[in-house]
Every structure is written in structure tokens, then in C-alpha cells.
């Protein structure tokens, strides 16, 4: 009799301690499901934690979505939507609504920046060879070639009608400045639709979007790559609870000829790369804006960047051509956790 009572009591006590421990463990920081890979022509990393226990399914779906986006937005992949549009010879073409929206966004952004941002530089990019990952194909073209290619550029030659688009004057679209940021937005939406209180991040080739704060209440600490440093060399840090961050720079795809650096971003007026900044990192609520703003800023230079950032509410950190770091007042909000 006594023994059974003791056994029952012990079980009861152990159960109570167990319940306390389990509640404590359940409230512990969530475990992140992390997956890395190559997609969208770049290194991709996702970290995702959700109470719905379907993190792997969602992350796999995100990878699939990236593949689909690449099939739409990669102008150098035959059979992609954008490739077809670039080769539609000025005819009206019904395009995927996502491509339509991004094109619309790009041309609107071009207007907003008075053409410093221009999505129609496809032919210039191809001329320099920066459309490939192969450094042997990157080259300095003759000035006559550049002026020839420049004739077939201009965001005004992108026309919209209903759900159709046409490209006049033989322009080629290259959305390299904006596609990664757009993909960040799409994937963030997917993750949040699955579980609005989920947490983690998406990192598409250095364009980062925050799904939710780390462990539910802490910021993600994000390093800003030193444009003249090694891969892991950070020049500054920011702490993000939400939002997106993107960097444009002159240090991944570039050639140096006669002591001068030429890289994959071009001034639509000259067809050469601008010499304003080594890099610019931007923080905003939208990935597509962060991404596009950086490219526009590289071309526009310091004064215009300051002006645009006030209108658009973008925080930035600029490393200028002398290596000096310059930030705006919005950036200060992210410097401390």
C-alpha cells in the first residue's frame, strides 16, 4: 500500500517538474531551419522558424519560387519571359503579371530619378560582358561600340497597355539592379503568409530581408562588406528587427584597365560606370526599393542620393571613392540594437 502511494506521488511530482520544464523549453528561442544553396544566379541562404512546424516545406517552396522567378527575370536564359520580351521586335507582348509589375516599378523609378536609374541598359551590359559570371568575357569596349549600344537604351521606350508591354527602339531590359530585391519581397511575403509571427531571414546574394526578429525579440546583426576588404571583412554593422537591406558596389564584377576601374553599373548618359562610390548599402521596408535605390545612387552621386533618400525614406551608408564612410540620419536608427 505504502509503496504504491510513494510511486504515485513520485510520478506526480516528476510530472509537475516535467510540465514546468516543458513550458520553459517551449518558450525558448525558436530553432531555425537553415538552408543554403545557389539559385537566382547567386548564393542564397534562408533561416526560418515557425510554430506551425512546416519550416522545411516553406523553405523548399521558397527555393522553388526562386527558380520560377529566375525563369521570368533572367534575360540571358533563353525561354525566360524577359528573354522573349527582349526578342519581341517591338511587338506588343502579354507578359507574366510579375514581370509587368517589376517593369512598371522600374520605369516609375526611372522617372523619379530623372533617368539615373534605367532598366533598359541590356545592350550596354552585354557589350561589356558583365552579363556573365566569366571574368574572361568582361572587357573594355571601344567608345564607338558604346555610343552604338547607347542608342538602343532609354526607359521611355518601354510602353505599357493593359497587361501588355512593348519595347521600342531595340532596347533590351536588364533587371539585374532590381530582381534580387524583388525576389526578397516575394519570399518575405510567402514566409509571412504561412505564419505572420514567424521569424528568420532571406539572403539572396547579399540582399537581405528580415522575416521576423531573431528569437522573436532580438535584432539580426548584419555586417556591411568592406568594398576593398576580404569576403568576411565588415566595415560597419546594423541591427535589423524588420525591413530589407541591400548593397550595390563596384567590387564583384569589374575590370581594371589603365588604372581605372570599370564595373557592372552604368551611367545611362555615358555608357561607362560612374565613379561616385565604392559601395552603398540601403535599408528600407521594401527589397525592390533598397535594391533599385542603391543602383540609382551609384549613378546619381552624393547630392542626388541625399535628396532621394529624404523623399523615399531610405537609410544609407556610402563608402565613397576615397573610402570614407558617410551615412544619413535614418541610418543612425539601425546602428545600435
Amino acid at each position: 500500500m505504502r509503496k504504491t502511494r510513494v510511486v504515485i506521488l513520485s510520478i506526480f511530482t516528476l510530472a509537475l517538474v516535467g510540465v514546468v520544464l516543458v513550458t520553459v523549453i517551449l518558450k525558448r528561442p525558436p530553432q531555425y531551419y537553415i538552408q543554403q544553396g545557389i539559385a537566382f544566379g547567386t548564393d542564397v541562404k534562408f533561416a526560418y522558424a515557425t510554430k506551425k512546424r512546416n519550416a522545411k516545406i516553406v523553405v523548399d517552396a521558397m527555393f522553388d519560387e526562386l527558380k520560377k522567378l529566375d525563369n521570368i527575370f533572367n534575360p540571358y536564359r533563353e525561354k525566360s519571359e524577359l528573354y522573349k520580351l527582349n526578342h519581341s521586335n517591338g511587338k506588343w507582348m502579354k507578359v507574366d503579371p510579375r514581370l509587368f509589375n517589376v517593369l512598371k516599378y522600374s520605369t516609375d523609378f526611372s522617372k523619379e530619378t530623372n533617368g539615373e536609374f534605367d532598366p533598359t541598359l541590356g545592350k550596354v551590359v552585354v557589350l561589356w560582358g558583365f552579363n556573365t559570371d566569366d571574368p574572361n568575357k568582361w572587357r573594355l569596349p571601344q567608345p564607338s561600340e558604346i555610343s552604338g549600344a547607347l542608342k538602343h537604351t532609354g526607359y521611355k521606350y518601354v510602353e505599357f497597355k493593359g497587361n501588355k508591354v512593348r519595347l521600342l527602339n531595340g532596347v533590351w531590359i536588364d533587371l539585374g539592379a532590381i530582381a534580387k530585391g524583388y525576389a526578397v519581397d516575394v519570399l518575405l511575403k510567402m514566409a509571412k503568409m504561412n505564419d505572420p509571427s514567424s521569424s528568420g531571414y532571406v539572403d539572396i546574394g547579399g540582399d537581405i530581408g528580415i522575416i521576423g526578429p531573431k528569437y522573436g525579440n532580438q535584432p539580426w546583426k548584419i555586417g556591411i562588406r568592406n568594398p576593398r576588404g576580404t569576403i568576411n571583412d565588415a566595415i560597419a554593422h546594423v541591427y535589423l528587427y524588420k525591413g530589407t537591406i541591400a548593397t550595390s558596389g563596384d567590387y564583384e564584377r569589374f575590370i581594371i584597365k589603365n588604372g581605372k576601374r570599370y564595373y557592372h553599373i552604368f551611367d545611362p548618359k555615358t555608357g561607362y560606370s560612374p565613379n561616385n562610390f565604392e559601395s552603398i548599402t540601403t535599408i528600407s521596408t521594401s527589397g525592390i526599393l533598397s535594391d533599385a535605390f542603391g543602383t540609382a545612387a551609384m549613378v546619381g552621386g552624393m547630392e542626388k542620393t541625399q535628396k532621394w533618400s529624404k523623399g523615399l525614406g531610405v537609410a544609407y551608408l556610402i563608402v565613397d571613392e576615397k573610402g570614407h564612410v558617410e551615412t544619413n540620419s535614418l541610418w543612425k536608427n539601425y546602428e545600435e540594437p
Binding site: 531571414y201 539572403d203 555586417g223 562588406r225 568594398p227 548593397t247
Partner: peptide, 10 residues
């Protein structure tokens, strides 16, 4: 100093 969680690059 704790290293960063992530790095943003071009």
C-alpha cells in the same frame, strides 16, 4: 564582439 549574423554585399 559577436560576429554578425549575416553580411550584405553587392
Amino acid at each position: 564582439q559577436a560576429p554578425y549574423d549575416l553580411m550584405t554585399y553587392q
